[in-house]
Design a protein around this nucleic acid. Structure first.
Length: 302
DNA sequence: CCGGACTCCTGGTTGC
DNA sequence: TGCAACCAGGAGTCCG
């Protein structure tokens, strides 16, 4: 499942290739991938075709590419009365954005976007998604509450900043966390409190900070919560560093599954394996309709 | 505010 | 060997 590091790898891979590119054509092969688009596929195609892409942005697991008019000369209409828009991408469980030449097809391509880039020439974006939990949509950009000059898609407006965002407010997060009447893993997965963390990195950062997934947030001491936040950052940063190294240079292959962190997981998917810290077996329990992996010895409710 | 149930979805794996 | 049941879960919605 793509979480913050995987989505950031995609964003960084797309940036040099799509920034400044003009959308030549759009093909929707599966309308279900437009679930989050407020309108029919014709509307999606009309609003995307002919637009110029700006630098991709990300918050948590959401990725978006702001769009401007394609006009090269004269004053840009995008800064005038036009409502700013963006192509919003969420990878869901299995989404990938593959950057290809105009001849390359990919299995299970749901949406295809053909681009003309002033430097790189003709390109093709294949949105591939096996389980169709991901989506593309054209959305309007709105001001954020804490920074009026920063615009985000309306679909992202309710999402908290992620812990790798320089404007993430540690103190405010810790205070909100302490006031919540819930348990810690639930809080970590609550994208309105802290974004970008999914099931894998939640389990990994809880293991690293020796906290049980069902620990009450109200009784979690501030030092331990602070440690957890530091471990969340460490885990995400490490994954990002490992994932950011595996690009195919010929096609600038942007792949949502490349550079996965699987070879250095301590808890996630490790049930039955010895805990790397104490040697006792890692246990998997069902929680929130998903697996929770933890060491019952190192991670106890306190 | 909180949590549980449900929905979307498909291909790999398991079980009989 | 064949097929059905099961499983994985991000995010939104609805309801108690």
């Amino acid at each position: 499942m793509p979480e913050l590091p995987e989505v950031e790898v995609v964003r960084a891979g797309l940036e040099p290739a799509v920034t400044g590119a003009v959308v030549a054509s759009v093909t929707v092969y599966d309308e279900r991938s437009l679930r989050r688009h407020a309108g029919p596929s014709e509307d999606f195609i009309d609003r995307l075709t002919g637009r110029r892409m700006l630098a991709p942005e990300r918050r948590g697991k959401f990725l978006w590419i702001p769009l401007s008019e394609a006009l090269e000369d004269g004053p840009s209409r995008s800064s005038g009365s036009q409502t700013p828009e963006a192509l919003v991408v969420h990878l869901g469980m299995s989404g990938q954005v593959l950057l290809r030449d105009r001849e390359t097809d990919d299995l299970r391509t749901r949406i295809r976007i053909e681009l003309d880039h002033p430097d790189h020439g003709p390109l093709r974006l294949n949105f591939v998604d096996q389980r169709i939990f991901g989506s593309m949509a054209i959305d309007t950009l709105v001001q954020t509450r804490d920074h009026p000059l920063q615009l985000v898609p309306t679909a992202v407006a309710h999402i908290a900043r992620d812990p790798l965002d320089e404007r993430f407010d540690d103190a405010a997060f810790l205070t909100r966390l302490a006031k919540k009447n819930t348990t810690i893993k639930r809080a970590l997965l609550d994208q309105t409190l802290i974004s970008g963390v999914g099931n894998i990195y939640a389990d990994e950062s809880l293991w690293a900070s020796k906290i049980h997934y069902d620990q009450s947030t109200a009784t979690l001491t501030r030092p331990r919560a602070k440690l957890l936040l530091a471990e969340v950052r460490a885990v995400l940063t490490k994954a990002l560093a490992e994932g950011g190294t595996s690009f195919d240079e010929q096609y600038l292959n942007v792949n949502g599954q490349s550079g996965y962190f699987a070879h250095s997981l301590n808890a996630y998917g490790q049930q039955g394996e010895p805990c790397p810290r104490c040697g006792r077996p890692i246990v998997r329990e069902s929680f929130m309709n998903r697996g929770s992996h933890f060491c019952p010895w190192c991670q106890r409710v306190r």
